[in-house]
């Protein structure tokens, strides 16, 4: 059974159908990419699967369990984590605290115990700090951990978001354009990082514009165009598909 199954998913905003009858399945342990021209519905698809939007129609299953229409915080509990196209870092916190929030669900969140700082809470917090620091080192941000997020450069924030998502110990990680706005060297680093994540038995679903990166690291690729599934396959299959070439270069080719 595939880890994530999306079946006939649709959503419309006003009169515009942003995602139309899209179906696909992601096997466990793969790097699965979603590509398509601007406005193809990639981010909308992410928002549907991660619970930010509720689909009008269709079914989403995670490890066989139906999850369509669940709230984002409920999906986090099921082992789902994500990053955002337009960075959603908490600028009012330090880098390390951002990562610690990622581990939210693994902690005792009791208000009274927290105020009285029960010994268990204090100990668990110290452990978490160490884990968070390790994660920051894993994404290559060890030198930033004590810094406020608001004073970090853009490229570092992109990786901080990945560290935060990993802190949740997700089964499946959705990365929405992790290389957007990065230069070639930084993109190569993200490329490497995504691979490292996948090697740690985290299934990765990726939306990305950088074709070199996508072709490089994806096990399978889904191509969307105008909210519809155009094709799906390996990098080679997709690259050679005439419909895909037409969608990217215009239909007259």
């Amino acid at each position: 059974m595939a880890l994530l199954e999306v079946d006939n998913l649709s959503i419309a905003f006003g009169g515009v159908t942003a995602v139309q009858h899209v179906s696909f399945a992601v096997e466990r342990g793969l790097v699965y990419s979603v590509i398509g021209p601007n406005g193809a519905g990639k981010t909308t698809l992410f928002n549907l699967i991660t619970g930010v939007y509720t689909p009008n129609e269709g079914e989403i299953r995670l490890a066989g369990e139906s999850i369509a229409g669940m709230a984002p915080h409920e999906l986090a509990l099921k082992g789902m984590a994500r990053t955002f196209q337009n960075l959603q870092i908490c600028m009012n916190m330090t880098a390390l605290e951002n990562v610690m929030v990622g581990a939210h669900l693994q902690l005792d969140r009791n208000l009274v115990k927290a105020m009285l700082r029960f010994p268990g809470i204090a100990r668990r917090d110290r452990e978490l700090k160490d884990t968070a620091r390790e994660l920051m080192a894993f994404v290559g941000l060890e030198s930033y951990w004590n810094l406020g997020a608001s004073s970090m450069p853009y490229g570092a924030l992109k990786r901080l978001e990945i560290a935060r998502a990993l802190a949740a110990k997700p089964r499946i990680l959705f990365l929405d354009e992790p290389a957007a706005g990065l230069n070639a060297r930084e993109t190569a680093e993200i490329d490497e990082l995504v691979r490292k994540v996948a090697d740690n038995d985290v299934t990765v679903v990726l939306v990305e514009h950088d074709m070199k990166m996508v072709m490089n690291i994806s096990d399978r690729i889904l191509v969307l165009d105008y909210g519809k599934k155009l094709t799906e396959g390996t990098a080679r299959e997709v690259r050679e598909n005439p419909d895909v070439i037409a969608a990217y270069l215009g239909s007259n080719v």
Binding site: V52, P72, N92, D125, R164
Partner: peptide, 25 residues
């Protein structure tokens, strides 16, 4: 104590980015 606890961090996180904190659970 509250501010430095998981509860407090969640609180500050939802101020910083509501959607990100939701996705974190």
């Amino acid at each position: 104590n509250l501010i430095d606890s998981p509860f407090g961090r969640a609180l500050r996180a939802l101020h910083g980015s509501e959607v990100a904190s939701q996705v974190m659970g």
